[in-house]
Design a protein around this nucleic acid. Structure first.
Length: 178
DNA sequence: TAGGCCATCTGGTCCT
DNA sequence: AGGACCAGATGGCCTA
């Protein structure tokens, strides 16, 4: 800002008092202006940030809406939602993989059963009739990593709740089909 | 009351 | 320069 640069220069010797005072007032004024400018920028930035977080939360809500929860009115926390989604995707892809492995030859194949829409029947699909994953808990480092008790925060004996934890290690490739 | 979760503010950094 | 993104700080609310 040129105005401020000018005002920050050294006062020339012998400048009349009145001029000096005026200059001082001018400086105070530009500082106040600068302050309000900064303030208004901050307020705008806060507004954007709030908006951004609202969008993030909306996306998180959308994600929640496609995840099965038990009971239905349970609202997953943010971290639970992310972990659960991770595991849910893992479980779905694992189911798909197993289905493909176990299917008869292609000519008689009708294709793997379409996974139910998570919003509808996902609960029963996950809790009973699906090929349940060997373990519902593993470390965050990926499906192939071993489970740790710490990562198992949400694992529990009753079916789905385990999905809130981190996913189990993937079955070894070519694992026998039952 | 402690601990968990959340929203908001804030300053820093990176990108366009 | 301005916006997006990020992480830390702070304070409020809720629950065990």
């Amino acid at each position: 800002m040129p105005a401020e640069a000018a005002s920050s220069g050294a006062e020339p010797p012998g400048a009349p008092r009145e001029r000096r005072r005026r200059r001082g007032r001018g400086r105070a004024r530009t500082e106040a202006l600068l302050h309000t400018l900064k303030r208004s920028r901050r307020v705008k930035a806060n507004d954007r940030e709030r908006n951004r977080m609202h969008h993030l939360n909306a996306a998180l809500d959308e994600l929640r809406s496609v995840l099965p929860t038990f009971p239905d009115d349970t609202k997953l926390t943010k971290i639970e939602t992310l972990r659960f989604a991770y595991n849910y995707i893992w479980a779905l892809s694992e189911t798909l993989r197993l289905a493909e492995q176990c299917l008869p030859p292609p000519h008689s194949c009708r294709g793997p059963p379409a996974p139910p829409s998570p919003g509808s029947d996902a609960g029963s699909w996950l809790s009973s009739s699906s090929p349940a994953p060997p373990s519902l808990c593993a470390s965050a480092s990926g499906p192939s990593s071993p489970a740790t008790s710490e990562d198992c925060a949400f694992a529990s004996p009753d079916g789905l709740r385990g999905f809130r934890g981190l996913p189990p290690p993937a079955a070894p490739p070519g694992a026998p089909c039952r």
